[in-house]
Design a protein around this nucleic acid. Structure first.
Length: 822
RNA sequence: GCCCGGGUGGUGGAACGGUAUACACGACAGACUUAAAAUCUGUUGCCUGCAAGGGCUUGAGAGUUCGAAUCUCUCCCCGGGCACCA
């Protein structure tokens, strides 16, 4: 028997750790600093995926190492257990979503426990527990009081066959419903929003101080999408209200030759009596409504639009009357829903102007042409295209330059002109792409929004004493057009009993991103039924030291939870400005064929099966070895590689059996004579784990074992301590075999002696004109002169220096010597 | 189109501007075995040479430097995010 029996070992030690409550984390331990390691809590989909292992078992290495270093480490776990799949299972198979969810949680809990991760299960939470969502509702009410939760109209996807609202993912690219196949319509419904846009500036500015990977910060910046520009007003002839536009290029105002309104723009209806082609306009608006967001944007450059005939706008700078169009390339949801079109300096406006033969006027001279003498004359046909003659080849210049055809502003550069034109014709405005967070879901399996409506339809918050506002249990899921909660007799009776006849509860539930926006605070005080998370406890743990999760959550979950936390901070319900000190996005594990794991490809790796074959320690370590964990790469699974890792652990196991028994003193190992090598290993492992570079740490273990055929008991014990976070079961077993009565996981992290880390001898590269011609071995710290002497004595170096003159010698201590020759 | 990452052996990947290809997988050869598996040992970037050695090599091309996978510029390709955002 060459290998070890992982089945017995792993089960035995997991039970033992559980019995000893080894990973239960007290709020405070005297003399220990608190350290919070967080992984995103999983959705209880029903079965553990290899990705879950990657997400939990690898950061566990880090958590364990921190614990051994003497920190009081919180490494909690829970379930993000509200959401659509439970409800789909209910509709499809008639299973109760609650039963489905909690069965999954029970099953997955066992699966997660098989990892041997050091989670503190005593703090476990589940978003769908009334104990939990009570506080989700309570926090909603806090935001509502603060004016950060409001009701507004929003357009939703409506399935006319199933008579239900669909999530965007349930609408196929061709605009039909995934389930019913019906053509999805748009409906405007009253929805609840969180005012995340109020925090746009802080969400953006505070990124600067975070020590996160720039990539993640950039993605958030992009998503927030800050633009500086101006609001400008264009009067409409014979009409009292002007059209207001947002533009980032007020400097091009003199080139605005027409205007475009989004088809949904409210002004259009007010202008009906003046519009001579109203029928055509109406048709266009109808057509726009029937398009899905995807269809509307998929058409890309092929622009459509209709002129509002009979009305004109006035360019405030040139006083010219310019036509007004409506077109769906202008979005109601950004800026003011209207634009001034400057076809000479905007590619979209240019394409539109060409198609509909609208005038193009150049007002910016590109810097390249300055002084070239090529183009100076506005009548030459190259500068400033006369209305009606825009078929002439004319290019778009969207860059900076010098103003022309702009009356008093001629000659100014675009940057100056932006300020001056804004000052004269409008006012500065900062615009964000970020929209308010729509949290209403016309769904069952979520936290009910704690709002009731009086008989007049006015919303009222549900008083705190009625929380949790329970999700009704017996609900009919047959899609009928009525929201599931609207069909609950119990909910109706409950509402009327508490609030009075004619009152009704809100039927929508909250987006699950609300649940996950504060879960990390509940772990700190998971049993508290008086507070969502005691501030005193938050002070002990927040902010989170390391947060590791999927790259797909960068712009949604991470941004939402930052917003939530900031809002709580403003309400004195949180202790810091930012929740996460460090955030890492992990990569993904691909199938053995290099494709994304999918039933379709038959390349799904089942972790349970792998664990049964080679054990949890091998799976953990293989995943840690597959690539750098601090980069969000995509790594293909390799069963051969996994077996290779098992081979390494078997080697560790066999190595141990040669060690001297503390009882008998027998064993084939001599005391380590060098004594320094383990110190180098300690140094490497320590810094690699800290940097989340588990792959190179494991390589270091392998090298060490390859190089050291024998080892002192002390060094061997240090080796096991270092390996303990990676292979917690095997190291525990070997540790106990050495006679120790307490767990290796309670051992202190080995320390290295800086003096012993230094190499005694070093290999120095000898180069001639930058090319390697030999190596010499010298004592560390040998002076330039001595190295030079020895290097020049090398035969091969001599040969290359033959007949050449050394013009320069570059010496890098303990590294290299380079003779530059002529 | 815009914003980020990347491009290194047959494969996953290592390399503070200083000996490129650590570690692992795979492959090949040998030992053990009746045999296979397992294990152990050795070889393994490419070209050339009996050997010592020499030449080439980090997507392509240029530049900076005594010295570049690493820094700069141009281009090509791959991945991720955003996208008619005015």
């Amino acid at each position: 028997m060459q290998g070890y029996n992982h089945k017995t070992i792993e089960k035995q030690w997991q039970q033992e750790w559980d019995k000893q409550k080894l990973y239960q984390t007290p709020d405070q331990v005297k003399g220990k600093k608190n350290y919070y390691v967080l992984v995103e809590f999983p959705y209880p989909s029903g079965n553990l995926h290899i990705g879950h292992w990657y997400a939990f078992a690898v950061p566990d290495i880090f958590a364990r190492k921190k614990r051994m270093e003497g920190y009081n480490v919180l490494f909690p776990i829970g379930f993000d257990s509200f959401g659509l799949p439970a409800e789909n299972a209910a509709i499809k198979h008639g299973i109760n979503p609650k039963k489905w969810t909690y069965d999954n949680i029970a099953w997955m809990t066992d699966q997660i426990k098989s990892m041997g991760a050091s989670f503190d299960w005593s703090r476990r939470i589940a978003a769908s527990d009334p104990d939990y969502y009570k506080w989700t509702q309570w926090l909603f009410l806090k935001l509502y009081e603060k004016g950060l939760a409001y009701r507004g109209k929003a357009i939703v996807n409506w399935d006319p066959v199933d008579k239900t609202v669909l999530a965007n993912e349930q609408v196929l690219p061709d605009g039909t419903a995934e389930r019913s196949g019906a053509k999805v319509e748009k409906r405007e419904l009253e929805q609840w929003f969180f005012k995340i846009t109020d925090y746009a500036e802080r969400l953006l500015a505070d990124l600067d101080d975070l020590k996160w990977p720039e990539q993640i910060k950039d993605q958030q910046r992009n998503w927030i999408g800050r633009s500086e520009g101006a609001l400008l007003k264009f009067p409409i002839s014979n009409f009292q209200f002007p059209i207001e536009v947002f533009t980032t290029r007020p400097d091009t105002l003199f080139g605005a030759t027409y205007m475009v309104l989004a088809p949904e723009h409210p002004l259009i209806a007010n202008l009906e009596s003046q519009i001579s082609n109203w029928k055509e306009v109406e048709q266009y608006i109808e057509k726009t409504k029937s398009k899905t967001e995807l269809q509307r944007t998929a058409l890309e450059k092929d622009k459509t639009g209709v002129e509002l005939k009979g009305v004109k706008a006035i360019n405030p700078a040139t006083k010219e009357k310019i036509p007004i169009w409506i077109a769906d390339y202008v979005l109601m949801s950004y800026g003011t829903g209207a634009i001034m079109a400057v076809p000479a300096h905007d590619e979209r406006d240019f394409a539109f102007a060409k198609k509909f033969k609208l005038p193009i006027r150049k007002v910016i001279k590109p810097p390249q042409l300055t002084g070239s003498g090529l183009v100076t004359d506005a009548t030459s046909g190259i500068w400033g295209v006369v209305p009606g003659q825009n078929e002439l080849e004319a290019d778009v210049w969207v860059g900076e330059g010098t103003l022309v055809n702009s009356s008093d502003f001629d000659g100014l550069n675009t940057v100056e002109a932006r300020n001056e034109i804004t000052a004269k014709f409008g006012k500065p405005k900062i615009q964000y792409k970020l929209r308010d967070w729509l949290i209403s879901r016309q769904r069952y399996w979520g936290a009910p929004i704690p709002i009731v409506y009086d008989p007049q339809g006015q919303p009222h918050p549900i008083p705190e004493k009625h929380l949790p506002w329970l999700l009704p249990e017996e609900v009919d899921f047959t899609p009928t057009g009525e929201p599931p909660l609207g069909k609950s007799k119990e909910l109706k009776a409950r509402t009327e009993k508490i609030f009075g006849k004619g009152w009704r509860s809100e039927y929508d539930t909250m987006d699950t991103f609300v649940d996950s926006s504060w879960y990390f605070l509940r772990y700190l005080d998971s049993q508290n039924d008086k507070e969502f998370s005691l501030l005193e406890k938050q002070k002990l743990w927040m902010p989170i030291d390391r947060y590791s999760g999927g790259a797909e959550h960068t712009t949604m979950h991470v941004l939402y939870s930052r917003f939530f936390y900031k809002a709580l901070f403003d309400l004195d319900l949180a202790t810091h400005k930012e929740p996460y000190v460090q955030r890492f996005n992990r990569g993904i594990i691909l199938g053995e064929d290099g494709r994304k794991m999918s039933k379709r490809w038959g390349n799904v790796v089942d972790p349970d099966k792998q664990v049964a074959e080679v054990g949890a320690d091998s799976v953990r370590m293989y995943l840690a070895f597959i690539g750098p964990y601090n980069e969000a790469g995509a790594y293909p699974w390799s069963t051969k590689g996994l077996i290779g890792m098992r081979r390494f652990l078997d080697k560790v196991f066999r190595f141990s059996s040669f060690s001297p028994s503390p009882l008998t003193g027998e064993g084939g190992r001599r005391p380590d004579e060098g004594g320094s090598s383990i110190h180098k290993l300690i140094k490497r492992i320590t810094s690699d784990i800290e940097a989340f570079k588990f792959n190179t740490a494991i390589a270091a273990f392998m090298e060490f074992l390859n190089e050291n055929k024998q080892m002192s008991k002390e060094n061997w014990e240090d080796f096991l301590r270092l390996l303990a976070p990676f292979a917690p079961h095997l190291t525990e077993e070997l540790w106990r075999q050495l006679g120790h009565k307490t767990s290796i996981h309670k051992e202190p992290w080995p320390k290295f002696d800086p003096k012993l880390v230094k190499e005694e001898t070093v290999t120095i590269a000898v180069q001639v004109s930058g090319k390697l011609r030999g190596t010499i071995i010298v004592d560390a710290g040998t002076s330039e002169d001595k190295v030079k002497q020895k290097a020049l004595a090398e035969a091969n170096v001599k040969r290359h220096l033959e007949g050449k003159k050394i013009t320069k010698v570059i010496f890098v201590k303990d590294k290299l010597i380079n003779f530059v020759v002529k």
